[in-house]
Amino acid sequence: MIALLVEAASWTFLLLGAFLVLVGALGLVRMPDFYTRLHPAGITDSLGADFILTGLVLQAGFSLVTVKLFLIGAFLFFTSPTSTHAIANAALVAGLKPRHAVVPPRPPEKATQDEEAR
């Protein structure tokens, strides 16, 4: 009974992780801008990888394999935000502009004038 539950949980984790990795890759292709593409890459790196590794841990049981899986998970946990930050920082320093920049909020008197004009 316990073995069946562990198996089912492992499958759930593996399939959820695969789904999230697919969604992240699709976002990497479909997003319009470099800075927005950072978000789907984050999905793949954090939750997708962790779900797949958790599913593998549940399959492995208690052994050296589990320790290695935890090492991979811990390493990805620390390095993927670091490299994402490094890429974003390098792009910002190099002067890459967001494609759909947010319009800065208008000063209040100008906004009210516009509203009166309407």
Binding site: V21, L28, R37, A41, T44, A49, I52, L76, I87, A94
Partner: peptide, 17 residues
């Protein structure tokens, strides 16, 4: 260039998995 670096990094993570 940064899109490519980001894609390569993502590709590497998927390779590990």
């Amino acid at each position: 260039l940064y899109d490519r670096v980001l894609a390569a990094n993502s590709f590497g993570t998927k390779t590990v998995l």
